[in-house]
């Protein structure tokens, strides 16, 4: 099921009237165990507020009096509400109970995908479409206003921040990246110069990285036809990919899983055409306004 169609399960750790509070240590262990398994947990108490309920499934955990979970349901019928007594449960048993309910309610299973995808900073983005024309995997698209957006984040290649390197304004973030400004840290003038430099590097390598791949592919093909040496062609491609990896900080496994050079060329042309169409529409809009 696509990521965006999945419902979520909200877990509430209830320690109010009709339930015994957990020891601080037990509370911490329970919270940690559930968070590490991907669940959202709300701790309610009489001090402070929490986010209101919504239409997601709600599981209320508590050490209820007499060890009996209350019976109850949402009067509006919008929330799938369940209670679970956790008296004498350790954190693992609590996690099992939560997981069982998650499966029963068909809620999203967490941890199947590392959340690695670009996040656009629209305070910096100039809608130049460089990311759209660069990405081979159809991650980017435009909305009805022809504004760039991330449309297929699960197509993104884990740990690859290459599109953020081609953004002239450092407007593309990968919050789980190791260093700034790609991780969301403040963008400095020096960062902008560095980003520009990286584009220059790719230009030096042959116009753009995909053009370079295509050129290498042609050379390899020509040699291949003369020498019939498939290993040499592969070595050549690998050499080229190593250069790309260091210039764009692209993980080698991502580069090695790229499709054939012919397919790369096709997708690059497709992405470029898409970006050009959007830019042309923008220009038409500007001139007719």
């Amino acid at each position: 099921m696509p990521l965006k169609e999945q419902t979520t399960l909200r877990v509430v750790l209830y320690e109010g009237d009709g339930a015994q509070p957990l020891e601080a240590g037990d509370r911490f262990t329970t919270m940690t165990t559930l968070l590490e398994k991907g669940f959202a947990v709300t701790r309610v108490s009489d001090k402070g507020r929490v986010a209101p309920a919504d239409r997601t499934s709600l599981l209320v955990l508590g050490r209820f009096n007499d060890g009996r979970a209350p019976l109850g349901e949402d009067a509006s019928g919008l929330v799938n509400l369940r209670f679970q007594d956790i008296t004498d449960f350790d954190s693992n048993r609590i996690a099992e109970a939560v997981e069982t309910l998650r499966a029963e309610t068909n809620a999203a299973k967490h941890g199947d995908w590392k959340p690695w995808f670009p996040v656009i900073d629209y305070d910096r983005c100039t809608n130049c479409m460089q990311c759209l024309s660069f990405c081979l995997f159809g991650v980017y698209g435009v909305d009805e206003q022809q504004r760039i957006q991330v449309q297929n984040n699960d197509n993104c290649k884990t740990n690859c921040p290459a599109c953020s390197r081609v953004c002239p304004e450092a407007a593309i973030m990968f919050p789980k990246y190791k260093a700034g400004p790609i991780n969301g840290d403040v963008v400095s003038d020096a960062d902008l110069q560095r980003e520009k430099m990286k584009i220059d590097i790719s230009a030096l390598l042959g116009g753009d990285v995909y053009a370079m791949l295509r050129e290498r592919s042609e050379k390899a093909k020509s040699r291949f036809s003369k020498e019939r040496d498939a290993d040499k062609a592969l070595q050549e491609r690998q050499k080229c990919l190593v250069k790309l990896a260091s210039a764009g900080d692209i993980p080698p496994e991502v580069l090695m899983s790229l499709p054939s050079p012919e397919e790369i060329a096709r997708r690059a042309e497709e992405a470029k055409a898409k970006a050009q169409t959007v830019l042309a529409a923008q220009q038409r809009g500007a001139s007719t306004a």
Binding site: K4, T42, V50
Partner: peptide, 28 residues
């Protein structure tokens, strides 16, 4: 947070929720 008496919301990973357009983000 757990040692304090305060109520709070905890989520496993905001990035994962954002990727899924999780409606919980709206409530938060």
């Amino acid at each position: 947070l757990c040692e304090s008496g305060v109520a709070f919301d905890a989520v496993a990973d905001l990035c994962e929720m954002s990727a899924r357009l999780d409606p919980a983000l709206k409530r938060l």
